[in-house]
Design a protein around this nucleic acid. Structure first.
Lengths: 144, 144
DNA sequence: TTTTTTACTTGTAAATTACAAGCAATAATA
DNA sequence: TATTATTGCTTGTAATTTACAAGTAAAAAA
């Protein structure tokens, strides 16, 4: 497939791919919320529509941000997982959450405070590493 | 104004505000390309339409990411500038550019390589600081 | 005083996203 | 083994967002 980029600016080109309502949210649902099946995603808080999910998962797969596979004992359920390229999006997500925490509370008072937000505030790099480690661990364990 | 947030997740809430084709591009045009007037923006490589620009600038102003002002000797030209809150978006932009540089070259061979990309590769924090400093300097100097 | 420039607004068309329903294959249950 | 439920989608249509084209008012320049 070929993608349309507005120009050759690295900032803008990332936004050409990731700058929409869903791409990074889906990645976050995998990385942070441990979602990995189609059903997991549609049952999320963010409530993505099935047709949009389908389109975006295909795009993420094409871009090698996500892989689609099946578990040996189940021919039905598809398992979506982040590739190393996908995990490299973690620092972007961390910066987004950090910015929210610092700048969005006034317009969004309900914004969550749990989930190791102290670590996020103190040490973004460590927070990112923790997210990646815990994701990788979970993947190693999950042979169900 | 009130904003619609999908849920109370800090990751998703940032994307509710910033996750579209233009919000972060406009911020980048100010921070990196030194754009500050309506005309500057519409003449950019990214070629935003005037109605979209108008809507997005208003939203950025409302969110206190950007201020709108005039220079003393000119009653016509509006000057748009990043607030401290807006400058706090820098690390997000830097991570986006970093990800592009590492992951988008295959699908986008023309992606730029200039603009202190070496510093970006070596030290993201220093790169972000450099962007902010040079923006602030430029603003101090510009009394034209 | 006329022409340009700047900063927009107002249509309308195109593209993206949302909502609702339905369907085929597999898996679980009776 | 037959029926029911679950999973992972697709299809159609409505709503929202973005794009394109044109036009306008105020200020500035010629």
């Amino acid at each position: 497939m070929d993608y349309k980029f507005r120009c050759d600016c690295p900032f803008t080109s990332a936004i050409d791919i990731l700058g929409d309502k869903w791409m990074l949210v889906i990645v976050k649902q995998m990385l942070v919320d441990g979602k990995e099946t189609f059903k997991d995603f549609i049952e999320s808080d963010e409530a993505i529509a099935t047709n949009i999910l389908s389109i975006k998962l295909k795009l993420l797969e094409e871009l090698e941000i996500v892989t689609k596979s099946k578990l040996p004992n189940n021919k039905k359920t598809n398992i979506y997982r982040l590739t190393p390229k996908g995990l490299e999006l973690t620092p972007i997500l961390v910066e987004l959450a950090f910015w929210s925490d610092n700048n969005l509370r006034e317009v969004h008072p309900d914004l969550a405070k749990g989930d190791g937000i102290d670590l996020l505030r103190q040490d973004k790099k460590a927070f990112a590493s923790a997210l990646i480690s815990s994701y990788q661990e979970k993947m190693d364990i999950t042979k169900d």
